[in-house]
Structures are given as C-alpha cells and as structure tokens.
Design a protein around this nucleic acid. Sequence first.
RNA 1: GGCGUCGUGGCCGAGUGGCUUAGGCAGGGGCCUGCAAAGCCCCCCACGUGAGUUCGAUUCUCACCGACGCCUCCA
Length: 452
Amino acid sequence: MLHLFDTAAGKVIPFEPRQPGRVSMYVCGPTVYGPPHLGHGRFSLVFDVLRRYLLWSGLEVDYVSNITDIDDKIINRANTEGRDWSDIAEKCESVWWRAMDAIGVMRPTSDPHATDYVEQMVELIADLITRDVAYVSDDGVYFSPSVVSDYGLLARQTIESMQAGARVEVADHKHSPIDFALWKFVKPGEPSWPSPWGEGRPGWHTECVVMSLDLLGDGFDLHGGGQDLAFPHHENERAQAVAAGRTFARHWMHNGFVEVGGEKMAKSLGNFTNLLDLVESTDPRAYRLLVLRSHYRSPVEVTRASTDDAAAALRRLDSFARRVASAQLPSAMPDPTALAEFVRAMDSDLDTPAAVAQLFGLVTEVNSALDSGDTATAAALAAVVAEICAAVGLVLDAGGSEIPAEVLERAAARDTARAARDFAASDAIRDALIAEGWIVEDTATGTQVRPA
RNA sequence: GGCGUCGUGGCCGAGUGGCUUAGGCAGGGGCCUGCAAAGCCCCCCACGUGAGUUCGAUUCUCACCGACGCCUCCA
C-alpha cells in the first residue's frame, strides 16, 4: 500500500483513498502572469509521477489543477504594460500548457479557472460572514483564522508562535495581522465582479476551496503543491473550508524547491529559469530524470551541470532501449521479484531515487544477460524496465527515427567493405558519417547509424 | 525573534547503528572489437566540527559551525 508523507500529520502515513480504487487529487496550478519556471516544472512532474504511478497501479485518478487567471500580479503587469488583464492571462496560460506538453505532463482531468468560479466564491464568503468568521472592512472582506482551533496545522506552528516574530504589518482594515482577504473591493481600472458587499474580486485563497470541493467533493483525497504553498495558502484554504463546516483534503503533500546555487528559485527572487528555455536547450526527459533522481521533498539543484549529467544518464537508457529493440526478445511477463522491489520503493513515500537506482541496475542485468545469450532472463527483466518507465512517465528512445536513404546506403557500403576486410575504406566511410553528425555503431545486424 | 530542513566520495545524489555501506556522471584498468562505439567486469574517491550514549556511529543525543526554507507574494 502506498505511504506518503502528510504535511498535516508531519510524518509518513498510509494513503487511503476515500473510495477504494479511485483517487481524487487537487494540485495547485499556476497564476498565469508570466512564463513558467523550473519550479513549476518540478511540482508538475512530481504530481504527474504520482498520478501515473496510481494509474499504473490500476486506480482511477481524478486530477484537478487550477488556473489562477485573476490576481494582483496579473493586474499589475497589465497596468505596467498597458494591456488587458485577460489578454495576459490567456497568453500565459497557453504558454503554460505548451511547457507542460513539452515536459510530458499529462493534462489534468479538469482545469478550473478562478474567473469561472467567482459566483461560488461569493456564496462561500457570504456563508462565512453568516457564520461570523468573516467581516466586511473598508477595503474588502476578511477572514479570521483564529476561529479555527487547529490553525497552523500545515505550518506546524501555533498562531501565537507565528505572531511572536510577525513581520506582518497590522493594517488598519484588518482586525488581526493573520486575517486575510476573501474579497477585495475594486479600485479604478481593475476588473471586478458583483457581490453583496460591493464590486470587487476574490482573494487568492478562496478559489481553491470552492473549485476543489465542487469538482472533487468533500473529503477529497489529496491536496498538493509546492512547499511554499503549505503556509499560508493551503492553511488558509483549509481554514475557510473548516469554518464553513466542510470536510477538506484528507492528505496534504508538498514538494521541495528547485534551487540555483543553494537558493530557492522563484519569480519573486528573479533567479528563475524559464521552463521553455530549458526544454529548448536540453532533452525534456532529462529534467524528468533529474526530478526522479532526487526525493520529491528534497531540494533539487538545477544547473547546466546537473541537467547535462541527467542527459548523459539518459543516453545510457536510450542506448539500452535500442539494444533491447534490436534484440527482438520474446514477449515475457515482468520478473515478479524485481517488480515487487519497484513497488516497494514507490509505496515508500514515492522513493523515486531508489526506483531509478533499480532501473539502472536492471539495465546492467539485462545487458549482461544479452551478452551471455540468456534471452529469457533478459526479456523478463527488460519487461520490468518497461513497466518502471511507464509508471514514472519516462519515455525511452529506441531510435527508429528516419535516416536518409543516402546515409543508409553508405552504412551498407561500410558493411560490404568490412566484409571484404577493406578497413581503410570502411573507416573512411565511418569518419565521414561521424563528421556529418552521425553516431556509428557496429551491431550484430551490421552498421547502425543514428543522429548524434 | 519563532518554527523547520539540510551538511555524504572529483561532481550529482540515496541510504544505514556493525553486514559486499545505492545509483548516475566523470576518471583509471581489463574483456569484447580489425580499430572504434556500445556493452560487460574490476578499481579509485565518503559521511561538517567537538563531545556524549554504545562493545561499536556516517547513522542516536547535545553543542557548535555553515547553508537553506517558512513565518510576506511565491510551485
């Protein structure tokens, strides 16, 4: 059974879905005001791996991930650039999906937009006011988390200890520094929606409450996102849901940061690398492998060196895939022992580093079996490799890409020369092909050529 | 100030009270090959500092040093 670290519990606990055989997960998506960076890529990959693993395990997965398409940052950028806020949101969203597609992240089963849920948010806010846990101030409607007895659960701190060193300004329009805005009254030039308290727009923390409960229902299984969302974002979502008498997420999962030179990568710090830029300069699969090689709760350093390293490791896997493909192994059931080892690793809080280590170990074993002609062993273990790759979303390149006929002819000419032991001629052909950017390898079936 | 994470070999990155102490990349040697490439085998290089617990600690405890994160927008 899958065990996951639960942020609320502070430890690894069994992951038991609300409904056997079906998992409902909500992963906080992006605010679309700029290009996605490596950090967005990591959380997307982490939860994509979890989703794929659950699917691979035979479960159905309802995967909801939102698009925050109305927010201060979008409005600010619109004002700065003299554009319409919705234009920015739309363009950035399309870039987002392009990046997700590029790194092989499955599309959510549902991708709700904040602007489509404003009415429901207003309903929730009205309910919270009725329950006397929210109040109308001069610039908006605020929520008082202090009414939630276990507020601070996800921050793993009490309200008191958080206030002890509070760097939060006690603004006039708030009763308490920890209060947060549910609704912000409209200012000139801003988009707005109607509400019983006046024209305005929703605060950030409300949308996820409404959308997750609407699409997944009370007590949905898992709520996830980056570590920085645990507090205050998720804490505040949870507080609203609890205050409204709803049952919120059963399990909380947060991934560690992408770092650059030991520092968190973030748009706000200005040290981010655009995800699409990475994908252009590196095989996108290398990023997935890099993410898989470190545990999801640990930080991962993403630099030119680390992506190059992952790309080199990936070449070994691709080379393996080509060899297995050309070996034309008999179909075989995956070796049950090896498969169980993989499941054990993944069930242990998604121990993908162990799974990757096992993957490379299997590659060596299959290569050895192939060297010694033990095709039965090779086939059974190669089948496990295929299973692991499928479960974590790693697609190996077994070649088969179109090689120009002219190049294939020269490869055949090289084989002819070699058969005649005319090595001067065969090496000349090889050197020429290499100079033109091809990788030339001898195999049992003759010269193999592929792009470098 | 409060809360928390981390410090592993040339680099990246797991893990563990003692057992052959992952894996990848790089480096060295060997096998294979006409020569290469790919592959296989072997080797090299460790656990921030100090003290404590223990028969024994890289792994547990404490202190210290250092790095980082959250407490404010942030994946």
